[in-house]
Design a protein around this nucleic acid. Structure first.
Lengths: 266, 266
DNA sequence: GTGTTTTGTGATTATCTGAGTGAAATTTCG
DNA sequence: CGAAATTTCACTCAGATAATCACAAAACAC
């Protein structure tokens, strides 16, 4: 293990600890202590570059979080919990927080979801688009039509589709190469696969979906812009909901025609 | 649901969102949007007290985290994801972070744990003490002696003890009322229970433990100080490790005598 | 089409937290 | 007791973020 890789790990650990709400001093102190297990303020200061006089504050902070124990002697000795224990402590804090956040948000009164909407919303970045797709799939009652390319048919989406199928939702999938079709059939029983070459046969792909004929989403990969090989996950989507929503109307027309036409071939 | 309870939930949600790294404006904007589902900058400003001109920055921040979608019209409309989705997004971020943190910490080189130590370390607050107890139990190889009162024999400790018993560690427990003894026997097969009235029969209880005869921990409940009914979870412990550690030597002597003496009665 | 209001963007100021520094108080040890 | 180290405390400074303001662009009213 080279000096650099240790230094990298060190600064990465510090960075992440700060994101858990620790001060810079506390984070650096903890990392210093973790490499040794224990040490005095002077020792900590030397390898962490934390001013010696402020090590004590940093340790106080860590102690309150249960990450460090102290030996009441002079000079004081400080001891850090193991990486595993630290992780356990931090994760537990987070879980507690997410629970409280969730109940607080729900206490604000469940708002009226879905239903009629006028405009069209835009979502940026692939993870966010995937989130929206998942949300739609999870809320589906009757039918899901989903056209995409394999790169965008990730495991979490397949799982959500399978769950929807389980509760009786009709799944209609398109855009899958025949190789993958078999796999999908196994994972999502009852899925209905149909061709879709009439669209983006070779274009910079995206997704196209309709749920219960009243929610629709269209996305495109937009890495054609500045730097093609830079970030392949730049995707932009628009979506709309409601019987009379313009985007819904357009896509429903398209899909309906396509699906009916398909039934003949099938 | 009264105004106050809604307000409470609101500020609590804001507080927690900030702890996830959101700015105050972003947090308040998100909460405002969550109550409505969607709205314009002016509407958001009115109920969130975020300066209208700053709502846009706040929304940018939320958009980058995938918590809000935008409608490109004038006036712009903003839409917030559901509480469930928000939680999913945030938890996923956190999980990613803890993974990276853990590997970074482990990359710092596993330090030499346990072994000979000179002094005794002090731990404050009940959760932290429990953490240390758990750490000891998990690292036990041969034998665990644990004396405590029922309040401090929580489920996670019982689980850890059961796991230790599974891998062949001898468990010797004391301080349990006979009512609970039966339960313990079921959860931790092979556990050895012995009496302990010679200590703290009715005193402000604590814990006393020894692992592999080379790690020991003593704790006391200290709520006798300022306000008795204030915080019942104020516990302070000291622990030490190593064959020759003074605390270990003392406790080992006590325990050894006690255990041998006990065998006769048993 | 023009004047007025609303909306969006950018620049500017104020406030606050936390990093960094240094001076006193305490302790240890010769 | 005095010197050196340790520990605590008070203070300055910088960067971030909250808050305000000024202006351009768009929508609306008439």
């Amino acid at each position: 293990m080279s000096i650099d890789s240790v230094d990298d790990a060190r600064s990465e650990a510090i960075e992440h600890l700060e994101q858990f709400g620790l001060s810079a001093y506390a984070a650096r102190t903890f990392v210093a202590l973790t490499t040794f297990g224990s040490g005095t303020a002077t020792e900590i200061s030397e390898i962490s570059n934390v001013p010696r006089t402020r090590v004590y504050d940093a340790v106080d902070e860590l102690q309150e979080r249960g990450l460090v124990d102290v030996q009441q002697s002079s000079p004081k000795q400080f001891w850090a919990v193991s990486a595993e224990t630290a992780q356990r402590i931090l994760v537990q804090e987070i879980e507690h927080r997410t629970d409280r956040l969730n109940s607080a948000l729900n206490a604000l009164g469940p708002r009226q979801q879905k239903h009629e909407q006028q405009g069209v919303w835009t979502v940026d970045d692939q993870p966010a688009v995937t989130d929206r797709v998942l949300e739609f799939v999870r809320g589906a009652d009757d039918e899901i039509v989903y056209m995409t390319v394999e790169e965008l048919l990730t495991d979490d989406i397949i799982d959500a589709l399978a769950a929807a199928a389980d509760r009786g939702v009709t799944i209609r999938l398109a855009g899958i190469s025949s190789d993958v079709q078999e796999l999908i059939r196994e994972d999502v029983p009852g899925v209905e696969l149909f061709d879709s070459m009439w669209l983006w046969s070779d274009t910079p792909a995206g997704r196209l979906m309709m749920v219960d004929r009243e929610q629709t989403l269209v996305s495109v990969i937009v890495n054609g812009k500045a730097s093609p090989p830079s970030d392949p996950r730049s995707e932009t989507a628009i979506w709309g909901a409601g019987e009379t929503n313009s985007l819904v109307v357009v896509l429903r027309t398209l899909f309906t025609w396509r699906l009916e036409h398909d039934e003949v071939d099938d």
